Amino acid sequence: MTKITKQEVKKVAHLARLELNEDEINNHAKQLENILEYIKQLEKIDTNDVPCTTRAIEVFNVFRKDEKKNSDCTEEILELGPSREDKYFKVPKILNQ
């Protein structure tokens, strides 16, 4: 495997607008080498029979059953609005006739 050079780390840091000192450059070079080595190991695994996924754990929505309920809180709800007219909220006119 090719070694990640300091120049490559500096170039990527420059493109990402990062300011790195020498210790950080050396550290990032070593970390990038480790990542590439790990990817090289993963490439050896046969994944032909493995289905494609978008996440490691399948996510399901849990819905409750819709139930019809009678509610008589119209007055309470209308009182929460800034203005009302009879059984409706009163809102400012926004369209010209």
Rank of each mutant, 00 (worst) to 15 (best):
T47R: 01
T47G: 02
T47I: 10
N48A: 09
V50A: 02
V50D: 04
P51K: 05
C52G: 07
T53D: 12
T54K: 12
R55C: 15
A56C: 07
A56K: 10
I57V: 14
I57F: 05
E58I: 12
E58T: 10
V59E: 07
F60E: 13
F60M: 11
F60P: 06
V62N: 04
V62H: 07
V62L: 13
F63G: 00
R64K: 12
K65T: 02
K65D: 01
D66Y: 07
D66R: 03
E67C: 12
E67R: 04
E67F: 00
E67K: 08
K68R: 13
K68L: 15
K69Y: 01
K69N: 05
K69W: 02
N70L: 12
S71L: 12
D72I: 02
D72M: 11
C73S: 06
C73E: 15
T74V: 10
T74N: 08
E75G: 06
E75I: 15
E75F: 10
E76Q: 10
I77N: 14
L78Q: 13
L80V: 14
L80N: 13
G81F: 07
G81T: 08
P82R: 13
S83I: 01
S83K: 07
R84I: 05
R84G: 01
E85P: 09
E85Y: 10
K87P: 00
K87I: 09
K87R: 10
Y88R: 12
Y88F: 03
Y88I: 00
Y88N: 13
F89M: 02
K90V: 05
V91C: 01
V91R: 04
P92D: 00
P92L: 00
K93P: 02
I94R: 11
I94M: 06
L95W: 00
L95R: 15
N96T: 04
